[in-house]
Amino acid sequence: MKLTELVETLGLEVRSCSDNLFKKEVTGGYASDLLSDVIGNSRSGDLWITLQAHVNIVAVASMKELSGIILTGGREPDEDTIQKAESEKIVIMVSKLPAFELIGRLYDLGVRGVSNKTS
C-alpha cells in the first residue's frame, strides 16, 4: 500500500517530504514512543506511529528504513525535526487521532503489526 492512499483515506496532514508519498510502500506498522524499542524491533517498510516529535525520530526512521512517521494526538514536529526529515527524505505526517484509534483505522485498511507468515 502506498503512503498516499493512507493520507487520503485517513485525512493525514503531511509535514515533510511530500514528494515521497507516491514512492513509499507501507508493508506494516509499528507503534512505539521509545526510540530504543523502534531501533530494536521495527521492520523495514513499517509505518511508525508515535508521539515523539523531537529530531531523533528522523535518524531512527532513516536508519531502520521505515516508510514514514505519523505523529498522533495532534502533536506537531519541531522545526529542526522537519528540516532534518526533508534532508533525510523521511515523510512525517500528523493526525489528530490518539494512537489507539489511528492504529485501529490503519488496521482496518489492512496495515498489520506482525509479519504475515503465509506470504
Partner: peptide
C-alpha cells in the same frame, strides 16, 4: 509548547519528559 523538553534520554525511556 507541546513537546518541548530538556529531559535526558533515560527520562524519556521511562515514559516521562516528553514535553
Amino acid at each position: 509548547e507541546p513537546g518541548y523538553s530538556t529531559a535526558p534520554e533515560w527520562v524519556r525511556e521511562m515514559g516521562f519528559g516528553a514535553g
